[in-house]
Design a binder for these strands. Structure first.
Length: 615
DNA sequence: AAAAAAT
């Protein structure tokens, strides 16, 4: 009988093609396989009927971005697609196509790419500040950078020096990026040169663009991409990140960078209905941004194949390992169908570079270049750090005092955005409740809230509706919330790196910020690293904290800063213990001006004695 | 000890 699954799929294809493709340029379309998705390298023929969004003159560049979107009825479902992109949380676009067939005209109009830049101008107006996406480059000028490895491509000083293609350049202008940040200046040439990269850099340093630009540019130039029939989709690039919010954020940024390049970016994470994500994937995907759990799910369902992956980026790798994602990550990278290191191009980003990440680097990367970018704020004083001794029982009233004071000097009578970190989810809820009871509009974000609640809280905070956000560590890393004026460590974390990440939520993009920590006897183990860190960043260290630090046991393992100084880590391949018998990872004396950096360096890798070329 | 992440 003729009713196999494949046949019914084929039948559905035909039907769908017939129903959606009966106007304009459908002619050469009908023979296409199940998806009418057009791979990037075929997209540069001008779309005959649907002009892509506004005022974009495609001009030069052979691989220009003018041709986004399939020529006709890109979606075989003809289904509602308008909501998928703007992920507003409550997208109503749930059910299948049906009704949409009646409104073909409307639907076709929506085929054009949603302009990710829409509304940006307004946002700037609202805040009344000179720039929003820009970065205070002077503050970045003196951030130390280290590279090592074989034949490191020279850094660039301007975007113009890099051949990213006109479409991408246009988006860079739209983003108002004037000048590359240090991590971008180094990482982009490395990636464009086809090299693997291990980068120690924090979010806020321009990382996302650093890995997105080469990926997008590479995909645009790629001639090998091809579509295959079936339910499975074949992304060309994969970006993994630890939290849902971070994935969403990367997706949003990547969409801006890829606007009108024809490169399609899709995000997949847990906590949201998978069907929507599946439909989005079916419409075609070049760059997949995902959290590990949801991706494993998709792989097991065979809805995504990694066979075509050319670019792999792991963001916040140390964080992912901390969260126990190593098995999932190894499964994704090593045990599915992803091309091996050397065939694909891999970029590993991590704020720190401990042993586990070094192992990951050895396993995932091929003759990579190591790049360490100093901590943002490490050599400047963008973030004013204050530590106050507050007993547990006094914390709430103390916080209240801070908030009142802040309200008093608030701009335009508006409460400045304040991010309050607490240790537990329960603690977050109860503090939020207490704040609200006391007249401070607050909301909270933590792992016990539904994804909808989390997204709503984040929006409400960003918009200033609830200018106080009480958060657990889910919000500590990577989230880019503009205009956070004050970070309060209501409960200090146990790990100094977490502290660094938390305070990094303010003072973003070169703006100044304030970070206040409530310290008491429960935080004794943090005293020394905290005092060290503050000293390092030219902050005033209270005498009582120094006393605490002196008292706390010496050399406590985990809390010792791993890289020493301003970097999150150093290239462990320099360790003599690692370069067994001359067959080291460096071909020739390569490297950079990093001469054997006069001693101080205790072979075992990573002791406090490590010095860098800048020390 | 807690948090995060697939259902």
């Amino acid at each position: 009988m003729r009713s196999s699954w494949a046949d019914s799929v084929a039948a559905a294809e035909t039907a769908a093609a017939g129903s959606t493709a009966n106007n304009s340029s459908a002619g050469n379309n009908s023979a296409r396989t199940r998806s009418t998705y057009v791979p990037p390298h075929l997209r540069n023929r001008a779309p005959s009927s649907d002009p892509p969004a506004p005022v974009y003159s495609s001009s030069t560049s052979g691989t220009d971005g003018s041709g986004y979107g399939p020529p006709a009825g890109g979606n075989r479902w003809g289904g509602p697609r308008n909501d998928y992109n703007n992920r507003s949380g409550y997208s109503s676009g749930g059910r299948g196509g049906g009704w949409n067939n009646r409104t073909g005209g409307w639907d076709r109009g929506r085929e054009q790419e949603v302009n990710p830049f829409a509304g940006i101008e307004n946002a700037v107006e609202e805040v009344g500040e000179q720039e929003n996406s820009g970065i205070n480059f002077d503050a970045y000028e003196d951030i130390p950078v280290e590279t090592s490895g074989d034949n490191v491509p020279p850094a660039v000083n301007t975007f113009a020096e890099i051949d990213l293609g006109e479409a991408l350049n246009q988006n860079i202008r739209r983003c108002k990026y004037v000048k590359p940040t240090p991590v971008q200046r180094h990482a982009i040439p490395i990636s464009l040169g086809g090299r693997d990269l291990m980068a120690c850099a924090q979010t806020g340093s321009g990382k996302t663009a650093a890995f997105c630009f080469p990926i997008i540019s590479g995909i645009m130039k790629d001639q090998a991409a091809q579509r295959r029939p079936g339910w499975c989709c074949f992304p060309l690039a994969l970006i993994l990140s630890p939290t849902r919010e971070l994935s969403m954020q990367i997706h949003e940024e990547a969409r801006k960078f890829a606007y009108q390049t024809g490169v399609k970016v899709v995000v997949a994470y847990g906590g949201a209905p998978i069907n929507q994500q599946l439909r989005e994937l079916e419409r075609g995907v070049d760059i997949l941004v995902a959290t590990p759990g949801r991706l494993v799910d998709l792989l097991e369902r065979a809805r995504v194949s990694l066979e075509m992956i050319k670019y792999l980026a792991l963001d916040e790798a140390d964080r992912m390992l901390d969260m126990g994602f190593e098995p999932q990550i190894r499964k994704i990278v090593e045990q599915m169908d992803m091309p091996p290191p050397g065939v694909r191009q891999t970029m590993l980003f991590s704020a720190t570079f401990p042993k586990e990440i070094q192992r990951l680097a050895s396993d995932f990367l091929a003759s990579y270049i190591f790049l360490a970018v100093g901590r943002v704020g490490s050599s400047t004083d963008l973030i004013v750090q204050r530590v106050e001794f507050v007993h547990e029982s006094d914390k709430r009233s103390h916080l209240m005092d801070l908030l009142h004071a802040q309200k008093a000097n608030g701009v335009h009578g508006k409460q400045a955005l304040t991010l309050v970190f607490v240790e537990t989810k329960k603690g977050a809820d109860s503090l939020e409740h207490w704040l609200c009871m006391n007249g401070f509009p607050a909301t909270t974000i933590h792992g016990d809230r539904t994804q909808q609640e989390r997204e709503y809280a984040l929006r409400s905070f960003k918009s200033g509706n609830t200018p106080i956000l009480v958060a657990t560590d889910v919000a500590a890393r990577g989230l880019d919330i503009p205009h956070v004026a004050h970070v309060v460590n209501f409960d200090l974390p146990n790990d100094i790196d977490d502290y660094v990440h938390r305070i990094g939520r303010t003072g973003r993009a070169g703006k100044s910020g304030l970070a206040t920590a409530f310290f008491n006897e429960n935080n004794a183990s943090l005293a020394r690293p905290l005092a060290d860190l503050m000293q390092e960043s030219n902050q005033e260290v209270p005498a009582w904290l120094s006393r605490f630090a002196a008292r706390s046991s010496y050399g406590g393992g985990k809390n010792r800063r791993s890289g020493g100084g301003r970097f999150g880590g150093r290239d462990f391949r320099r360790d003599s213990s690692f370069n067994r018998g001359g067959a080291d990872y460096y071909g020739g004396g390569g490297g950079t001006g990093y001469g054997a950096s006069g001693g101080g360096y205790s072979g075992g890798g990573y002791g406090p004695g490590v010095t860098s070329a800048w020390d």
